[in-house]
Structure formats: structure tokens, C-alpha cells
Design a protein around this nucleic acid. Structure first.
Lengths: 231, 231
DNA sequence: TAGTGGTCTAGACCACTCA
DNA sequence: GAGTGGTCTAGACCACTAT
């Protein structure tokens, strides 16, 4: 090629410019890929790649036959990573610590059964553990695990957190995650070393593989925790 | 082509199978794109697309020259949408309401200046508003806005929330978002109609366009709010 | 320096979906 | 039915980086 090729990033930037300058107003259709490719002097695949990125970011909507249009109400999509807790602690420059508080086999409470879509109150493995960051309490991990998972009978959760064991040893097809605020009650405040009644950040996550449920976990973070990401 | 083409989804599924079956163990290198394409009988671009998706999902790590390897500690990535508050309320089947509490021009507090990377304590537009869901308090919007934005002098924030005005009327190049728990103090608890000291969910967001800061906002949700997404 | 992923091109066929 | 996006192919060049 005599000319340097147009990159898909350049096409994306140009499309973004047109959206922001209202040259392509919100809610209105934009040219089809073939026309854009001709206009910008690049291959349709390049335009496709650029527009696919914008669609993934929620800035345009694409439909076959109907074409693409600028999203009427741009929805910002933010992606954040759900790290292994130990890595989250290490990334903050602190020393990760882990302590298994209890390990029992018991029928889960109704809300856990519901979250995991279980019909029968069969016993599950219940673990409670405390993660520390440079000695300070960081997060309580309260987890229910399907006791029929391969290899779980030999897993030593006193040494390795269930978080890590599961990530490394189970497949996984889907799940839900929820973020919320809760009040640290007596037991939690004792473990986290804070006053009872303090507001703390919580995450509940459920995962399953096909029809088999894997685990439901509630993470309760020490006061002051912030989950941060760039958009 | 006599044979139906191999799709990138098929390549991705096959790679996923090998990772989960430990045929490609965690942390170990996988074949390069050209070899995989030959083995699977498809074009390298197809393999590239599949592996790019897996890399975006955090399951493999890719580096030029060094090749690709299975991530030693797979990081789950979740994407969630940051909706306009009114849409969030409507999506819950409730009737959105909006009430402007105050609108002033004042120098922002230090934490807001810091978040927006401002050096001078120039006055900014300060809005406080309450969003309601079917009459019930839903969320407090406490926002600082750059008063130099185009068209802002004619915007009527008593009618349209700043949230919506900004989404529709400003460009935007980047920002930060943070999620945390906080305690509803006197003023907030009064507006939200809850007891003081209750744990509530908060979001702080900062956005700017190039070197120009746009807005910093803190959203304080009524007790019980959960931010949910699928992974 | 050489190997690997990143990307572009030009052409083609297909799948979805609106009219 | 026909227009649009979704994808595949085969070949090519480039950019980054480990050695």
C-alpha cells in the first residue's frame, strides 16, 4: 500500500467525534458500513471492527437490516475486574493473610437456596473465613459450596481460600453479582474489628456451571473499602 | 468452500474446553495462532478473534513474541451499565420523580477539587436533587458542575435532572467511578426518609473531557438499594 | 534479530429482520 | 425479497519484545 492504512481506532475516533459534535445526533441512524468504508477509504472489516467496539461500549445500537444508530440515551458501560481477594490486597501494596474461621456441613438458609436455584434443602459445605491485609481485617468471606464438586473432599481450605480453589478447579458458565451496603452486626463487627452498626460494603455472588450450582458467597468488607474503576 | 466454515465462537469454545480440561494447564503457554489455525482448519484471523475474546475475558494473557498463555489466576471481568437514574427507576417498574433541592454557585470543597484535578478554587455550580421512585425517596444526587459548559446557562435543572442534561449535551473523554457504603447522616436521612445512622449505598463519579473537567457527583441511595449484574 | 500477536485488505457468503 | 450487519478467508505488512 502506498498510503498508511486506516486503523480501526482511527475509524472509531472519527465516529466518536461525529457523535459528540452532533453531526450524528442521538437516536439518528448512521451510514452503513459499506458507505462509511468508501468514505473513509478503508475496508469494511475495519469499519466493522470500529463500530463493534462502539456498540460494546453502548454508544451505538446495531441491528441487521435496520442499520446502526446512535444510542438515544447513551448507557455507560463500565467493566471492572473481580480479582481474587488475595490479589486485591496485594495490589494495594499490603500483605495478604487468610484465616479459616469455620467449616461445617449444613442445609443452607432459604435465601442461599433461592440464589442457587436449589429446590431441596440438601446439606452444603459452609465456610467462613477472614482475609487480612497486613494484619488488619480486610474482608469476611461467608460461602456455601456444592459438596459434590470434583476434588473438593481433598481441598484444604485452612490453607487455600475457597475463592482461589474454586477459580482454579471448577468450570463456570454463569452467575450473578450484587453490590450493596449493610450494617456490621455483632459478629461481623467483631471479626472486622470495628464498632457494631457501622456501614460496610458487601458483595454477593452466585455462580453455576450449566445446571449444577457451584457456590454462593457474601463478602463483607471492612469499613472504608471502596471499589474503584475507570470509565 | 465445500466445508462449512469454522466460526470464531467454535474456536473459542474449543480453547475454553482445553483450558477447563487442563489440557492447557493454568500458567502454561498455548500454541501460537498460526499453528492453531492449521490444526483447527481455519484462518488465523478466526483464531485471533477467538483468543482476543478470551484475553478480554481475562482467561488468557497475550504478549507479542512471548506468545499466549493460560492466565495463572483467571480474573473474572464483569460489565455493568451505568444507567440514567430515571431509567433505572423505570426499569424497576416504578414511577420516576425528580425534585431540585438547591442550586448555588460556590467554590467546591477540597475533595471535589482533587477529584476533578482543579488547582484553583473557582466557583462551580452546585446542585442537590432528590430522585423518587413512585413517590418514595430513591437517591440523592449531589453534584458539582463546571459552570463554563456550553449551554448550561439556559438549562433548567428544576425540570430536567443534571444527569440527563449532561449525558445529552456534553462530550466526555474519561472518568472514575467508585462504589462504597456510607452512613446516612442527619441531612441525608431526612431526605431519604430513613433513620439517621443507617447504612446506605453510595457512588461517586467524576468525568472530564480532555483537560476540561465536567462534573463530580455523589449519589446516595435509599436503604436497601442493590446494584446487580450478571457475569 | 527473529518470532509472535495486531491489524488491514478485498472479496465472499450467510443470517437476520424489516417491509 | 432485499438490505444490513456478522463473519470467514488468504495473504500481507507492521509493532512489539524476548533473547
Amino acid at each position: 500500500m502506498a498510503q498508511p492504512a486506516i486503523t480501526w481506532q482511527a475509524v472509531e475516533a472519527e465516529a466518536l467525534r461525529r457523535i459528540r459534535s452532533r453531526e450524528w445526533p442521538a437516536g439518528s441512524p448512521i451510514p452503513n458500513e459499506a458507505d462509511l468504508a468508501r468514505e473513509l477509504g478503508c475496508a469494511r472489516a475495519t469499519v466493522n471492527r470500529a463500530l463493534r467496539e462502539l456498540a460494546a461500549a453502548g454508544l451505538i445500537e446495531r441491528r441487521r437490516k435496520a442499520g446502526s444508530r446512535v444510542a438515544a440515551t447513551p448507557v455507560r458501560k463500565a467493566t471492572f475486574e473481580i480479582p481474587i481477594i488475595r490479589q486485591d490486597i496485594a495490589a494495594r501494596g499490603l500483605e495478604p493473610g487468610y484465616e479459616l474461621i469455620s467449616r461445617t456441613l449444613a442445609p443452607p438458609p432459604p435465601e442461599v437456596r433461592l440464589a442457587l436455584r436449589l429446590h431441596e434443602p440438601a446439606p452444603m459445605l459452609h465456610l467462613v473465613a477472614l482475609h487480612r491485609a497486613s494484619g488488619q481485617p480486610f474482608c469476611i468471606e461467608d460461602r456455601w459450596i456444592n459438596p459434590d464438586l470434583d476434588g473438593i473432599e481433598v481441598a484444604d481450605f485452612a490453607v487455600q481460600s475457597a475463592n482461589e480453589w474454586l477459580v482454579r478447579n471448577t468450570a463456570f458458565s454463569g452467575g450473578d453479582i450484587a453490590f450493596f451496603a449493610l450494617t456490621a452486626e455483632a459478629a461481623a463487627s467483631r471479626m472486622l474489628g470495628c464498632a457494631p452498626g457501622v456501614a460496610v460494603f458487601g458483595i454477593e455472588r452466585t455462580t453455576w456451571a450449566g445446571a449444577q450450582s457451584i457456590t454462593a458467597v457474601r463478602l463483607t468488607y471492612a469499613p472504608g473499602y471502596r471499589m474503584v474503576t475507570a470509565i
